[in-house]
């Protein structure tokens, strides 16, 4: 039993996480639904009355309650994992990544899940916080609806279903991600 607890408290390797994600997708199919997190952005827009001003949100969001409940569960899962299953919140990133980020002036990269230099309410008042959090969030919300899905809907579900559209979306994810990380982030991280 203590072996099991020890195992759960360590960071989980990719070959544990990947199959569990595939299981989540399978279970959602078995329940008669699909796996797609970004749909919840649209659901919340509809819930807040967006259907009155925009036809994209003019649908009965109550039929999507299952997905909103899945999201509530995901938040709860994050809470449980953080508070009860993770004695050490350090992230096991590679030495090359640590060296790169230290060169940009980050202190102890990987000490927590997110860099405190960017993700704090104080930083929201700076260009850095505005660009990374506010503008970044906007692009995620806009891009995912434009592309008709995010990592769960396209990279996992769509590619598993051998959909050319999803493969193209994932190519787009990487064009954007690589452009940002290699050419734009070096400037933004120095802000």
């Amino acid at each position: 039993m203590s072996y099991v607890i020890d195992f759960i408290q360590q960071p989980w390797p990719w070959y544990v996480a990947g199959p569990l994600i595939a299981f989540v997708m399978f279970a959602l199919y078995y329940f008669g639904n699909t796996f797609g997190m970004s749909s919840n952005f649209r659901n919340v827009c509809s819930m807040l009355g967006g259907g009155r001003s925009c036809d994209l949100f003019d649908f009965d969001w109550r039929e999507q309650t299952w997905n909103l409940m899945f999201t509530v569960g995901a938040i709860l899962g994050g809470f449980i994992a953080y508070n009860f299953l993770t004695p050490d919140t350090a992230v096991g990133i590679s030495p090359a990544t640590i060296a790169d980020l230290e060169a940009y002036g980050m202190v102890e990269p990987g000490k927590n899940f997110v860099p405190s230099e960017i993700f704090s309410f104080e930083e929201l008042l700076s260009w850095k916080g505005l660009i990374f959090i506010v503008f970044g969030g906007f692009l995620v919300g806009f891009g995912t609806r434009y592309a008709g899905g995010c990592t769960s809907g396209h990279a996992i579900s769509g590619m598993s279903n051998l959909q050319p559209a999803s493969l193209l979306a994932v190519v787009g994810f990487f064009i954007g991600g690589l452009l940002m990380t290699h050419f734009i982030l070096p400037h933004l991280l120095m802000l």
Binding site: F135, F138, L139, S152, G172, I175, G176, G177, M180, I184
Partner: peptide, 17 residues
């Protein structure tokens, strides 16, 4: 759409889930 999403993903370091 995918490219715009990717630009945002690399900034926030988090997709919707």
């Amino acid at each position: 759409g995918g490219t715009l999403f990717g630009l945002g993903w690399a900034l926030t370091g988090a997709c919707p889930g």
